[in-house]
Design a protein around this nucleic acid. Structure first.
Length: 768
DNA sequence: TCACGCTCCCTTTTT
DNA sequence: GGGAGCGTGA
């Protein structure tokens, strides 16, 4: 099946190696067996991966035997573009190579092989908000009080369980205490609801393929035959489920290449296991390991700063970062009076940079929390600077857009209860909470899907004839929409049909009229957003939802695109569910980018400002007191710093509003870890610090339990006194140490031993 | 049934 | 500061 092309291969390979360093070449050249590429920031990670894929193809490996897994669509698309460009020179094609995210790979597997996964191929994918409301429903259905069991923590617990491949039964068998039992109960109910609605959540897209590959040898054999070469990007951020999928997929051919950088592992909180990359060599003893340490992206100054910072992490394999570029300018470290002054400083600086020739698209503002973007947006809007907040889903999170999509989802699958609940009375159509709870009650009592119960609503106890009539009309409306679904056509006509469906849904449901009548500016925006959704549907190019070569013998599967409108519709909904924040970054738009540090991974800009470099923001409050969490925060700043090619700013504000109250801040401890000689520091007038703070005194400050100075705190907790800590319990103060980053106390806790904590942040109480 | 206004609660990062 | 939930009045 794999036809080598000996004559052209050698010739085609030549340009693929030109311009690469010896280390990079050895990645491209490697043949046979597991390969770990330890790629530092800016070391040409994407280059080696794309060249490697192109080189495999040039050598005769059939493109459809190659699978490349990434974390964002953007990364996958970029790789595809570069592989195609490389092969084009040699007159070869990359068609058939599968480059996609882990999540969409999982979704495609499940859609292609519904029998193996035991789920109908037309399942919907719940996004974060849907999941939250489904969890809430499940908590209520399990007769638990949402007040004592916050949906967020239950949801997190279930997610963690799924990452470890524990289903509800497995989880329950380990549940020992009150809380885990409650989670287990909710987990069961939640899963039952998902099954009824033919829905899956994000974690299922990883968990189900992992379990199926593990437990179904026949399926595993089919898949391992199908893909013989696997490449994984950002391997340091894979979780257990992803590790297992990869591990089992390569169990035959063993051609696995993983690329990553342990210093950029920033998703531990969502189950990523840094051990996957650190222990790769133990898992695959015959693995070849190639370090790529040379940085071709940033100036020597920026690389030196990043290097000095990350050396403070103790749980780390030592590694040298070497910069290939010039020294460049010093790092701008700025400490401003408040968050407005900080934003103004960055914007003023960026304006200057822009005047001297750097386009807006080559600049980025990075922050630890999305909330920090607000001040920047305000100032940028006022000053007329074009910008985009890279929050991929923000458009789809608007209320009106979610409502419209809710209707579209009902068209796709009327059993989708999350969608149903969302739109049943939006706009108001006389199906209020009372009637609706009767419908739900009837459905649960008779163990039928809600949609089926609605078919004969007049027979439900306690439903007024008015409400029954409204429900009947609603059902009829959805069924009319669904009648066009079996239409077929080519991709272009299907996109037109799809946008027609969206338009009809918006019109017929009454959403359009509802908002058009409003007349406020906000309503006007909502109407515009609905229009934009229609255009988005029209622009949908169609997605491959079916993987060829698994069910039939036609490996190369010329065009497996969906041909019916309903396939197209599912493809669209799936593409909406799986957008990543960074997918929105598009240099051709020529605008400044604002985004979270997490979302910035893998990107690069000439000019970068990391803002909010303050204790309790970066590192975040919730990580303080936990050394491995602090190390992840440090890696996060490391990622931010290494996004910059030419210049870097690190800024902080002396005071900042925290949930409505203005509070004093301290500069991030991480800034002290960057050598002074790399820094050009400026601080707003020191005496002005108090002035500025006092100027804000109009807003309440006094409620803060954080004192302005360490001395007072030190007096509150003298050495030898007994204290109680929220997390660690009772302990005795052993020492008090004033530090620039805060007053530090060494405390010997009864159960957790000696810990060093910062008094300003620890919720510490003195015991008499 | 629905709109409005009040209070309380929580505060991270994302596919 | 902002969202969600709840109570009240029309």
């Amino acid at each position: 099946m794999d036809l080598p092309k000996p004559s052209s291969a050698a010739a085609a390979l030549q340009p693929l190696l030109a311009g690469l360093t010896p280390a990079q070449r050895s990645v491209v050249d490697h043949r046979g067996g597991p390969l770990l590429v330890n790629a530092g920031p800016g070391s040409g990670k994407t280059t080696v991966v794309t060249h490697r894929i192109a080189s495999l193809i040039a050598e005769g490996v059939a493109p459809w035997r190659i699978l490349g897994l990434t974390f964002t669509n953007k990364a996958a698309e970029e790789m595809r573009g570069r592989v195609e460009a490389l092969l084009e020179h040699a007159g070869l094609t990359a068609e058939g190579v599968l480059l996609c995210t882990f999540h969409s790979f999982g979704a495609r597997l499940m859609r292609t092989l519904p029998d193996d996964f035991g789920i109908p191929p037309r399942f919907v994918i719940l996004d974060a908000a849907d999941q939250k409301s489904a969890i809430k429903q499940a908590i209520r259905a399990a007769n638990l009080d949402p007040k004592s069991f916050p949906p967020a923590s239950i949801s997190a617990a279930i997610s963690t369980a799924k990452n470890q491949l524990k289903n509800a039964e497995a989880y329950e068998s380990e549940a020992v205490d009150f809380l885990t039992r409650a989670v287990a109960k909710t987990y069961h109910t939640y899963e039952a609801r998902l099954r009824e609605q033919e829905a899956v959540d994000f974690d299922d897209l990883l968990m189900r393929p992992a379990i199926a590959l593990r437990d179904q040898p026949e399926l595993r054999a089919r898949l391992t035959r199908r893909w013989t070469h696997l490449l994984i990007d950002e391997y340091q951020d894979t979780n257990y489920a992803q590790f297992l999928v990869a591990d089992l997929l390569v169990s035959e051919a063993r051609n696995v290449t993983v690329v990553g950088d342990p210093d950029q592992s920033i998703y531990g909180w969502r189950g990523a296991n840094i051990g996957n990359i650190l222990e790769f060599e133990m898992r695959y003893p015959d693995a070849k390991v190639i370090p790529l340490g040379e940085n071709f992206r940033s100036t020597k100054t920026i690389v030196a700063a990043a290097d000095a910072l990350i050396r403070n992490n103790e749980q780390r394999k030592p590694k040298d970062l070497v910069a290939a570029n010039d020294t460049g300018q010093k790092i701008r470290v700025r400490r401003l009076d408040d968050e407005r002054a900080e934003a103004q400083d960055v914007v003023d600086h960026f304006r200057e940079v822009e005047r001297s020739g750097t386009p807006w698209s080559e600049m980025a503002v990075l922050y630890r929390m999305n909330a920090l973007s607000r001040v920047f947006e305000e100032i940028l809007r006022r000053e007329g600077v074009p910008y985009i907040v890279a929050k991929g889903t923000s458009f789809f999170e608007r209320k009106e857009v979610r409502d419209a999509i809710g209707y579209v989802r009902l068209v796709a699958n009327p059993r989708d209860e999350v969608a149903l609940e969302r739109v049943i009375n939006m706009p108001p159509r006389g199906i209020g909470a009372t009637s609706w709870s009767r419908v739900i009650g009837e459905a649960r009592a008779t163990s039928q899907p809600v949609w089926d119960v609605m078919q004969s609503s007049s027979r439900i106890d306690g439903i007024s004839s008015r409400a029954a009539k409204a429900i009947e009309q609603f059902v009829e409306m959805v069924q009319t929409w669904r009648s066009t679904l079996s239409q077929t056509g080519d991709l272009e006509s299907l996109s037109v049909d799809l946008s027609d469906v969206v338009q009809r849904v918006i019109d017929d449901s009454g959403l359009a009229v509802h908002y058009a009548r409003g007349g406020t500016e906000e309503d006007h925006d909502r109407v515009e957003n609905l229009d934009e959704l229609v255009s988005a549907a029209a622009d949908f190019p169609g997605a491959v939802s079916h993987l060829p070569g698994l069910t039939d013998d036609q490996m190369e599967g010329s065009d497996p695109s969906p041909r019916t409108l309903d396939g197209h519709l599912f493809g669209w909904l799936e593409s909406i569910s799986l957008v990543a924040d960074s997918d929105q970054v598009d240099p051709s738009r020529g605008v400044l980018t604002l985004m979270s540090l997490h979302a910035s991974k893998g990107l690069e800009f000439e000019e970068v400002a990391v803002v909010g470099c303050e204790e309790s923001i970066l590192p975040h409050m919730r990580s303080i007191g936990d050394s491995s969490a602090i190390e992840e925060e440090r890696r996060l700043l490391f990622v931010g710093i290494t996004r910059a090619k030419q210049r870097l700013s690190l800024t902080s504000a002396k005071s900042r509003p925290v949930r409505g109250f203005r509070e004093r801040t301290m500069e991030s401890q991480f800034l002290c870890e960057i050598p002074e000689e790399l820094i050009d520091r400026w601080e707003s007038n020191a005496s002005a610090e108090t002035d500025s703070f006092l100027n804000h005194e109009s807003s309440p400050v006094g409620s803060s339990r954080r004192g302005p100075g360490g001395r007072r705190l030190a007096n509150l907790f003298p050495v030898g006194c007994l204290v109680e800590h929220e997390q660690f319990g009772v302990g005795r103060v052993e020492a008090i140490m004033p530090r620039p980053s805060g007053t530090t106390a060494r405390i010997d806790f009864r159960y957790d031993g000696v810990k060093t904590i910062i008094l300003e942040y620890a919720k510490l109480e003195r015991l008499e």
